[in-house]
Lab assay of single mutants.
Amino acid sequence: MKATFQVPSITCNHCVDKIEKFVGEIEGVSFIDVSVEKKSVVVEFDAPATQDLIKEALLDAGQEVV
């Protein structure tokens, strides 16, 4: 499964690193693409990962998800 999250609070590479760390810890996540320019995060994943778990990880990383 693939999901795109709009994350307007992404401003720098530190944000990218933190997002990759938090989302990458979720079992089932196979790909993460964070774009500072587009302020988006694209995640490819399989169970047990879910969109809700990914959104929670983004929030835990200090990001706003819309």
Rank of each mutant, 00 (worst) to 15 (best):
residue 1 M to H: 14
residue 1 M to E: 08
residue 1 M to A: 09
residue 1 M to L: 09
residue 1 M to G: 09
residue 1 M to I: 10
residue 1 M to C: 14
residue 1 M to P: 05
residue 1 M to R: 11
residue 1 M to N: 13
residue 2 K to L: 07
residue 2 K to P: 00
residue 2 K to Q: 06
residue 2 K to G: 04
residue 2 K to W: 09
residue 2 K to N: 06
residue 2 K to F: 06
residue 3 A to M: 09
residue 3 A to E: 10
residue 3 A to C: 12
residue 3 A to I: 14
residue 3 A to D: 09
residue 3 A to P: 09
residue 3 A to L: 13
residue 3 A to F: 07
residue 4 T to A: 08
residue 4 T to I: 14
residue 4 T to V: 13
residue 4 T to W: 14
residue 4 T to K: 08
residue 5 F to D: 07
residue 5 F to Q: 04
residue 5 F to A: 05
residue 5 F to S: 05
residue 5 F to V: 05
residue 6 Q to D: 11
residue 6 Q to T: 09
residue 6 Q to R: 10
residue 6 Q to V: 13
residue 6 Q to S: 12
residue 6 Q to Y: 15
residue 6 Q to L: 14
residue 7 V to R: 00
residue 7 V to K: 00
residue 7 V to H: 03
residue 7 V to D: 05
residue 7 V to Y: 02
residue 7 V to A: 01
residue 7 V to C: 07
residue 7 V to M: 05
residue 8 P to M: 08
residue 8 P to D: 09
residue 8 P to Q: 09
residue 8 P to T: 10
residue 8 P to F: 06
residue 8 P to A: 11
residue 8 P to H: 09
residue 9 S to E: 07
residue 9 S to N: 10
residue 9 S to L: 08
residue 9 S to P: 04
residue 9 S to I: 05
residue 9 S to G: 10
residue 9 S to C: 12
residue 10 I to V: 07
residue 10 I to K: 00
residue 10 I to D: 04
residue 10 I to P: 02
residue 10 I to Y: 03
residue 11 T to I: 11
residue 11 T to E: 10
residue 11 T to K: 12
residue 11 T to F: 15
residue 13 N to H: 15
residue 13 N to M: 14
residue 13 N to S: 13
residue 13 N to C: 14
residue 13 N to R: 14
residue 13 N to F: 11
residue 13 N to K: 14
residue 13 N to G: 14
residue 13 N to V: 15
residue 14 H to A: 15
residue 14 H to Y: 11
residue 14 H to E: 15
residue 14 H to F: 13
residue 14 H to L: 15
residue 14 H to G: 12
residue 14 H to M: 15
residue 15 C to V: 12
residue 15 C to Q: 12
residue 15 C to S: 12
residue 15 C to G: 09
residue 15 C to H: 12
residue 15 C to I: 11
residue 15 C to R: 06
residue 15 C to T: 10
residue 15 C to K: 06
residue 15 C to D: 15
residue 15 C to M: 12
residue 15 C to W: 11
residue 16 V to I: 10
residue 16 V to T: 05
residue 16 V to P: 04
residue 17 D to S: 12
residue 17 D to A: 14
residue 17 D to Y: 10
residue 17 D to F: 09
residue 17 D to N: 09
residue 17 D to I: 14
residue 17 D to M: 11
residue 18 K to L: 13
residue 18 K to C: 07
residue 18 K to I: 12
residue 18 K to A: 10
residue 18 K to Q: 09
residue 18 K to Y: 07
residue 19 I to C: 03
residue 19 I to Q: 00
residue 19 I to R: 00
residue 20 E to K: 15
residue 20 E to Y: 15
residue 20 E to W: 12
residue 20 E to I: 15
residue 20 E to V: 15
residue 20 E to N: 15
residue 21 K to E: 06
residue 21 K to V: 05
residue 22 F to W: 09
residue 22 F to H: 11
residue 22 F to S: 08
residue 22 F to R: 11
residue 22 F to K: 09
residue 23 V to K: 00
residue 23 V to M: 04
residue 23 V to W: 02
residue 23 V to G: 02
residue 23 V to S: 00
residue 23 V to Y: 04
residue 23 V to Q: 00
residue 23 V to A: 03
residue 23 V to D: 03
residue 23 V to P: 02
residue 24 G to T: 07
residue 24 G to L: 10
residue 24 G to D: 03
residue 24 G to F: 08
residue 24 G to I: 05
residue 24 G to E: 04
residue 24 G to M: 12
residue 25 E to C: 07
residue 25 E to Y: 07
residue 25 E to K: 15
residue 25 E to W: 08
residue 25 E to H: 09
residue 26 I to N: 01
residue 26 I to V: 14
residue 26 I to Y: 02
residue 26 I to Q: 01
residue 27 E to H: 07
residue 27 E to W: 06
residue 27 E to P: 11
residue 27 E to A: 10
residue 27 E to M: 10
residue 27 E to V: 12
residue 28 G to I: 03
residue 28 G to H: 02
residue 28 G to Q: 00
residue 28 G to Y: 01
residue 28 G to A: 03
residue 28 G to N: 03
residue 28 G to V: 03
residue 28 G to M: 00
residue 28 G to W: 01
residue 29 V to D: 01
residue 29 V to S: 00
residue 29 V to N: 01
residue 29 V to T: 03
residue 29 V to W: 00
residue 30 S to W: 11
residue 30 S to K: 14
residue 30 S to D: 04
residue 30 S to E: 06
residue 30 S to Y: 13
residue 31 F to P: 02
residue 31 F to E: 06
residue 31 F to Q: 08
residue 31 F to T: 08
residue 31 F to L: 09
residue 31 F to A: 10
residue 32 I to E: 01
residue 32 I to K: 00
residue 32 I to W: 01
residue 32 I to R: 00
residue 32 I to N: 01
residue 32 I to Q: 01
residue 33 D to Q: 12
residue 33 D to T: 12
residue 33 D to H: 14
residue 33 D to V: 11
residue 33 D to E: 14
residue 33 D to K: 11
residue 33 D to F: 13
residue 33 D to L: 11
residue 33 D to Y: 15
residue 34 V to C: 12
residue 34 V to H: 02
residue 34 V to M: 04
residue 34 V to Q: 01
residue 34 V to E: 03
residue 34 V to A: 06
residue 34 V to S: 01
residue 34 V to F: 05
residue 35 S to R: 05
residue 35 S to H: 06
residue 35 S to Y: 04
residue 35 S to T: 03
residue 35 S to A: 04
residue 35 S to E: 04
residue 35 S to F: 05
residue 36 V to P: 05
residue 36 V to Q: 05
residue 36 V to W: 07
residue 36 V to A: 04
residue 36 V to Y: 06
residue 36 V to E: 04
residue 36 V to T: 05
residue 36 V to M: 09
residue 37 E to R: 08
residue 37 E to Y: 05
residue 37 E to G: 06
residue 38 K to A: 10
residue 38 K to Q: 09
residue 38 K to N: 13
residue 39 K to S: 07
residue 39 K to T: 05
residue 39 K to L: 07
residue 39 K to Y: 04
residue 39 K to P: 01
residue 39 K to G: 10
residue 40 S to E: 13
residue 40 S to M: 15
residue 40 S to P: 02
residue 40 S to F: 11
residue 40 S to G: 03
residue 40 S to C: 13
residue 40 S to K: 11
residue 40 S to A: 07
residue 40 S to V: 14
residue 41 V to C: 04
residue 41 V to N: 00
residue 41 V to I: 09
residue 41 V to T: 01
residue 41 V to F: 03
residue 41 V to H: 01
residue 41 V to Q: 02
residue 41 V to R: 00
residue 41 V to W: 00
residue 42 V to M: 12
residue 42 V to D: 06
residue 42 V to F: 13
residue 42 V to W: 08
residue 42 V to R: 08
residue 42 V to E: 07
residue 42 V to H: 11
residue 43 V to A: 03
residue 43 V to G: 00
residue 43 V to L: 03
residue 43 V to F: 00
residue 43 V to P: 03
residue 43 V to M: 01
residue 43 V to D: 02
residue 44 E to H: 14
residue 44 E to L: 14
residue 44 E to K: 09
residue 44 E to F: 15
residue 45 F to K: 00
residue 45 F to W: 13
residue 45 F to E: 01
residue 45 F to H: 02
residue 45 F to P: 01
residue 45 F to D: 01
residue 45 F to G: 01
residue 45 F to Q: 02
residue 46 D to G: 10
residue 46 D to R: 11
residue 46 D to E: 12
residue 46 D to F: 13
residue 46 D to T: 12
residue 47 A to S: 10
residue 47 A to L: 13
residue 47 A to D: 06
residue 47 A to I: 08
residue 47 A to F: 14
residue 47 A to P: 13
residue 48 P to V: 02
residue 48 P to N: 02
residue 48 P to H: 01
residue 48 P to R: 02
residue 48 P to D: 03
residue 48 P to I: 03
residue 48 P to M: 01
residue 48 P to K: 01
residue 48 P to T: 03
residue 48 P to W: 00
residue 48 P to Y: 00
residue 48 P to F: 03
residue 49 A to I: 03
residue 49 A to F: 01
residue 49 A to C: 05
residue 49 A to M: 01
residue 49 A to R: 01
residue 49 A to Q: 03
residue 50 T to N: 06
residue 50 T to Q: 02
residue 50 T to H: 04
residue 50 T to R: 03
residue 50 T to E: 00
residue 50 T to A: 03
residue 50 T to M: 03
residue 50 T to V: 03
residue 50 T to I: 02
residue 51 Q to K: 14
residue 51 Q to W: 15
residue 51 Q to G: 07
residue 51 Q to R: 14
residue 51 Q to S: 11
residue 51 Q to L: 15
residue 51 Q to D: 07
residue 51 Q to T: 14
residue 51 Q to A: 14
residue 51 Q to P: 12
residue 52 D to Y: 07
residue 52 D to S: 10
residue 52 D to E: 13
residue 52 D to F: 08
residue 52 D to A: 12
residue 52 D to C: 11
residue 52 D to I: 08
residue 53 L to Y: 05
residue 53 L to G: 05
residue 53 L to M: 12
residue 53 L to S: 08
residue 53 L to P: 00
residue 53 L to W: 05
residue 53 L to R: 13
residue 53 L to C: 04
residue 53 L to T: 07
residue 54 I to L: 04
residue 54 I to F: 03
residue 54 I to R: 00
residue 54 I to K: 01
residue 54 I to W: 01
residue 54 I to V: 04
residue 54 I to S: 01
residue 55 K to Q: 08
residue 55 K to A: 08
residue 55 K to C: 09
residue 55 K to E: 08
residue 55 K to P: 02
residue 56 E to K: 15
residue 56 E to G: 12
residue 56 E to Y: 07
residue 56 E to R: 15
residue 57 A to F: 00
residue 57 A to Y: 00
residue 57 A to T: 02
residue 57 A to P: 01
residue 57 A to Q: 02
residue 57 A to G: 05
residue 57 A to I: 04
residue 58 L to G: 02
residue 58 L to R: 01
residue 58 L to A: 01
residue 59 L to N: 07
residue 59 L to A: 08
residue 59 L to K: 10
residue 60 D to S: 14
residue 60 D to L: 14
residue 60 D to N: 14
residue 60 D to K: 15
residue 60 D to M: 14
residue 60 D to F: 12
residue 60 D to W: 10
residue 61 A to F: 08
residue 61 A to G: 03
residue 61 A to D: 01
residue 61 A to R: 02
residue 61 A to I: 07
residue 62 G to C: 15
residue 62 G to I: 13
residue 62 G to H: 05
residue 62 G to Y: 12
residue 62 G to W: 12
residue 62 G to D: 06
residue 62 G to T: 11
residue 62 G to E: 07
residue 63 Q to K: 07
residue 63 Q to Y: 15
residue 63 Q to M: 15
residue 63 Q to H: 15
residue 63 Q to S: 05
residue 64 E to D: 11
residue 64 E to W: 11
residue 64 E to Y: 11
residue 64 E to H: 10
residue 64 E to N: 09
residue 65 V to P: 07
residue 65 V to E: 05
residue 65 V to K: 05
residue 65 V to C: 15
residue 65 V to M: 08
residue 66 V to G: 07
residue 66 V to I: 13
residue 66 V to Y: 06
residue 66 V to F: 05
residue 66 V to E: 09
residue 66 V to K: 09
